[in-house]
Simulated scan of single mutants.
Amino acid sequence: MSQALRVVVADDQELVRSGFAMILDAQSDITVVAEAGDGTAAVEAVRRHRPDVALLDIRMPGLDGIEACRAITAGTACRTVMLTTFDADEYVYEALHAGASGFLLKDVRRDDLVHAVRVVAAGESLLAPSVARRLVEAYTRNTPPPSAPPARLDALTARERETLLHLARGLSNAEIAAALVVSEHTVKTHVGNVLAKLGLRDRIQAVICAYETGLISPGRPPEERVRGLGSP
């Protein structure tokens, strides 16, 4: 039998925190190892218990959820899912930029909460890259991109840059394989290389990286967005 997924739940509202913990602990494959009422306690709990996933409320006293997420993702292998009552794009963007792997509203259905923990623990992103792309476009449209891709991208081969471009457009592995005329196995290798070379945690972080480095310029048709690559 595989080991149960270990989870930390952090929310300053005790009833909300206990409710999420109860739902997750009722699953045979999930164990809530700690609860926390603020960001500082959440970071300490993650460092102490080394969970697979941390559920973090965005708005908590003292150290907020976004700063807690940043500390957790920078110092541990724990993946984070952000919880909020605010359905606002800026919170999603800030959470993703801090390293979050998922984003949920607090009125999430029981089954969706459990699914989110399993998906994120498996190394996947809870927010579709295409959604992240739209958010990043909205928040980078007024920021001029670099005049040329920075040296950070020099570590990538030409094919890996193409792969990053397609990731930023929200394409699946199958769609990237079709665009590059290669196998899905080859695409998985390229994606893994891109994430490793650029120090990115997942595909969502790749979307953000592509826009922030100027590889793609927001607000233009896809065929005009490539910077230094030619058409996709």
Results as ranks from 00 to 15, higher is better:
residue 144 P to E: 12
residue 115 H to S: 08
residue 21 A to I: 05
residue 23 I to Y: 09
residue 107 D to G: 14
residue 178 A to M: 07
residue 36 A to D: 07
residue 5 L to A: 08
residue 173 N to E: 10
residue 141 R to I: 13
residue 123 G to E: 11
residue 114 V to E: 01
residue 202 D to H: 10
residue 65 G to M: 08
residue 219 G to M: 06
residue 154 D to T: 11
residue 232 P to F: 08
residue 57 D to T: 12
residue 10 A to F: 05
residue 173 N to G: 02
residue 96 L to E: 12
residue 200 L to Q: 05
residue 102 G to F: 00
residue 106 K to E: 11
residue 79 R to W: 07
residue 104 L to W: 02
residue 216 I to D: 00
residue 186 T to A: 07
residue 93 Y to A: 12
residue 174 A to Y: 03
residue 121 A to C: 09
residue 226 V to G: 00
residue 173 N to V: 11
residue 187 V to D: 08
residue 210 A to N: 01
residue 10 A to G: 13
residue 136 V to T: 08
residue 42 A to S: 09
residue 55 L to C: 01
residue 113 L to W: 13
residue 44 E to A: 15
residue 228 G to L: 04
residue 192 G to I: 02
residue 21 A to R: 10
residue 121 A to D: 10
residue 93 Y to G: 04
residue 63 L to M: 15
residue 75 G to F: 02
residue 64 D to I: 04
residue 180 L to T: 07
residue 76 T to L: 13
residue 177 A to T: 05
residue 189 T to V: 02
residue 169 R to S: 11
residue 185 H to T: 12
residue 125 S to G: 14
residue 78 C to K: 04
residue 168 A to L: 01
residue 44 E to I: 15
residue 87 D to E: 13
residue 163 T to G: 07
residue 160 E to D: 06
residue 159 R to A: 14
residue 197 K to A: 06
residue 101 S to V: 09
residue 1 M to A: 04
residue 26 A to F: 01
residue 134 R to W: 03
residue 184 E to C: 00
residue 228 G to S: 08
residue 231 S to Y: 14
residue 31 T to I: 07
residue 169 R to Q: 15
residue 48 R to Q: 15
residue 6 R to V: 08
residue 204 I to P: 00
residue 33 V to K: 01
residue 170 G to V: 10
residue 133 R to A: 08
residue 31 T to V: 14
residue 36 A to T: 02
residue 61 P to S: 15
residue 23 I to T: 14
residue 45 A to Y: 13
residue 223 E to S: 07
residue 85 T to V: 11
residue 4 A to Q: 02
residue 31 T to S: 12
residue 46 V to A: 01
residue 48 R to T: 14
residue 183 S to T: 12
residue 86 F to M: 14
residue 124 E to P: 07
residue 110 R to C: 10
residue 24 L to S: 09
residue 88 A to F: 10
residue 116 A to M: 07
residue 182 V to I: 15
residue 192 G to A: 06
residue 147 S to K: 06
residue 155 A to W: 09
residue 15 L to T: 14
residue 36 A to Q: 05
residue 164 L to G: 00
residue 121 A to G: 03
residue 2 S to Q: 04
